[in-house]
Amino acid sequence: MIYRPRKLNPFVLILPLLFNSCVSLTKSDEIGFRTLFNGKNLNGWVGNTSSYRAEDGMIVVDPNGGGSGGNLFTKEEFSDFILRFEFRLTPGANNGLGIHAPLEGDAAYLGKEIQILDNSAEKYADLHPYQYHGSVYGIIPAQRGFLNTVGKWNQQEVYVNGSTIKVILNGTTILEGDFIDASKNGTLDNKDHPGLKRNKGHIGFLGHGDVVHFKNIRIKDLSTNK
Rank of each mutant, 00 (worst) to 15 (best):
residue 2 I to H: 12
residue 6 R to E: 15
residue 8 L to S: 14
residue 9 N to T: 01
residue 11 F to D: 15
residue 13 L to H: 11
residue 14 I to A: 15
residue 19 F to V: 15
residue 22 C to T: 13
residue 25 L to H: 08
residue 26 T to Y: 14
residue 29 D to S: 14
residue 29 D to M: 10
residue 30 E to Y: 12
residue 32 G to M: 15
residue 32 G to K: 12
residue 32 G to V: 13
residue 33 F to N: 07
residue 40 K to F: 10
residue 42 L to I: 15
residue 44 G to N: 05
residue 44 G to A: 08
residue 44 G to I: 05
residue 45 W to H: 07
residue 49 T to E: 11
residue 53 R to A: 07
residue 57 G to P: 06
residue 62 D to F: 05
residue 62 D to S: 08
residue 70 G to D: 07
residue 73 F to H: 10
residue 73 F to R: 03
residue 79 S to I: 02
residue 80 D to V: 07
residue 81 F to Q: 07
residue 86 E to K: 03
residue 91 P to D: 08
residue 92 G to Q: 07
residue 92 G to D: 09
residue 93 A to C: 01
residue 93 A to N: 03
residue 96 G to N: 05
residue 98 G to D: 12
residue 101 A to P: 04
residue 104 E to S: 09
residue 105 G to N: 04
residue 106 D to C: 11
residue 106 D to N: 13
residue 110 L to P: 03
residue 110 L to C: 06
residue 111 G to M: 00
residue 112 K to R: 05
residue 112 K to T: 07
residue 115 Q to L: 08
residue 117 L to H: 02
residue 117 L to P: 01
residue 117 L to F: 07
residue 119 N to I: 06
residue 120 S to D: 12
residue 121 A to T: 11
residue 124 Y to G: 11
residue 125 A to R: 10
residue 126 D to V: 04
residue 126 D to C: 05
residue 130 Y to G: 05
residue 131 Q to D: 12
residue 132 Y to H: 08
residue 133 H to Y: 13
residue 134 G to R: 04
residue 136 V to F: 13
residue 136 V to S: 14
residue 141 P to N: 05
residue 145 G to E: 10
residue 149 T to G: 07
residue 150 V to F: 14
residue 152 K to V: 06
residue 153 W to M: 04
residue 154 N to T: 11
residue 155 Q to I: 14
residue 156 Q to D: 00
residue 158 V to K: 05
residue 162 G to Q: 11
residue 163 S to F: 07
residue 164 T to M: 04
residue 169 L to H: 03
residue 170 N to D: 05
residue 171 G to H: 01
residue 172 T to Y: 06
residue 176 E to C: 03
residue 178 D to L: 03
residue 180 I to T: 06
residue 181 D to A: 13
residue 184 K to P: 09
residue 184 K to C: 09
residue 185 N to C: 02
residue 186 G to T: 11
residue 187 T to Q: 02
residue 193 H to Q: 02
residue 194 P to Y: 02
residue 197 K to R: 00
residue 198 R to W: 00
residue 200 K to T: 00
residue 201 G to W: 01
residue 202 H to S: 04
residue 205 F to K: 02
residue 206 L to Q: 02
residue 213 H to R: 09
residue 214 F to K: 00
residue 214 F to H: 01
residue 222 L to T: 12
